[in-house]
Computed example of a mutant assay.
Amino acid sequence: MSLFRLNRLFNPTSGRALDVAVDHGFFGEPSFIGGIEDMPSVVRTLVAVGPDAVQLTIGQARHLQSVPGKAKPSLVLRTDVANVYGNPLDEHLFSHHVPFAIEEAVRLDAVAVCANLMQLPGHPAIRDANIRSIMALREQATRYAMPLMIEPLVMQDNATAGGGYMVDGDTAKVVTLVRQAVELGADLIKADPTTDLADYAKVIRVAGGIPVLVRGGGRVDDRTLLERTVAVLDAGASGIVYGRNIIQHPSPAGITAALMAVLHEGMGVDAALKLVTEYAK
C-alpha cells in the first residue's frame, strides 16, 4: 500500500526529514515543558524557520494546522501518553493510546502518527501496554492509509539514571527493540542513537528498509549534536526527530536552520555552526 502522506514528510531532493518534537507536555512532567510554556509562540517560531514536520498532540495540533498556506511544516501526531519519566516513579505506571487517534489524525491532516514501544527495566507491563496500543493503532492506520511511526525506546532504570529521558544506548538492546517495531508493522522508526555511533548501521540494517529517524535525547552542545547528526546520516538514517535540543536552544531558529542545511544540503559541521551564530546575531 502506498502511503502518499509521506510525500509531505520527506524532502523531495534529499529524501530526508527533520521532525521537531514538541509533544512533551502530554507526559505530565514539570521539567518537560521548559521552553515550551507558550505553545503558540513556539509553533510560530518553528513555522517561520520551516522544518519538515512538527510533532504535536491532539490538544496542540491546532496551533500548526490553523496556519494558512501550503508551506508550513507537516504535522506528526503523538498518539499515546505515559507516566514513566518521573523520579521516583509513581506506584501505578500506565501507558494509553488515544482510542480515536487515527481518525483524529485524518481530520487534522497529519502525515503520520507516533506511538511508543518502551523497554523499562523491571516494568514489562509497560511494554505489554505499548504492544497492545500499537496493534490497535496498526489496524486503524491501515484502514485510513495513515503512516505509523513506532518509537522503540530502551530506557535506563529511572532510580539510578535520575529520571527523564535517560536512555540505554546498548547496541544489542536498541537493535532488538527496533526489530520488534518492524515486526509490529512500523511504517517509520524513531530510534535512539547507539552509544557507539559506529554501530548505527546495524540499526539501519535490522530495520530492513523501513525509514529510521533518530531521536535527539537530552540537551548537548551544538557541535556534539551536529556531529552526531552527520554520523547517523552517514550510517543510513532517513532523518532526525529532535525536541529539547531545538526548543530549549538559545536560538531555536538558528539550530533548526543548521540542522536543515546538514540534512538537505550536506553542509558540514563547521559551516553549520557558523549558521547558528549568524541567526543568533
Results as ranks from 00 to 15, higher is better:
M1R: 11
S2A: 13
S2D: 13
L6W: 09
N7D: 15
N7R: 15
G15D: 13
R16N: 11
F26C: 12
G28P: 08
G34N: 15
G34M: 10
I36C: 09
M39C: 09
P40K: 11
T45P: 00
G50I: 02
P51Q: 07
L56P: 02
H63L: 05
S66D: 15
K72S: 08
L77Q: 06
A82D: 12
A82M: 12
A82S: 15
G86R: 13
N87V: 09
D90E: 15
D90K: 14
E91V: 11
H92A: 14
H97Q: 09
H97P: 00
P99F: 05
A101W: 00
L108I: 03
L108D: 03
A115M: 07
N116R: 06
N116T: 11
L120V: 11
A125P: 07
A125L: 14
A125G: 15
I126W: 12
N130R: 09
R132S: 14
R138G: 04
R138Q: 07
Q140Y: 03
Q140F: 03
A145C: 06
M146V: 01
P147I: 03
P147E: 03
I150D: 01
Q156E: 10
N158L: 06
A159I: 00
A161G: 02
G162I: 01
V167M: 09
V167I: 10
D168V: 01
D170F: 06
D170I: 00
L177K: 03
A181Y: 00
E183Y: 00
G185P: 00
K190G: 03
D196Y: 09
K202T: 10
I204C: 07
I204D: 07
G209V: 01
G209Q: 08
V214E: 09
R215M: 14
V220F: 08
R223L: 11
L226W: 10
E227V: 13
A231Y: 10
L233W: 13
L233F: 13
R244T: 08
R244G: 08
N245W: 04
P250D: 07
P250S: 07
T256D: 05
A258H: 06
A261H: 02
M267R: 10
G268V: 07
D270T: 10
A272N: 04
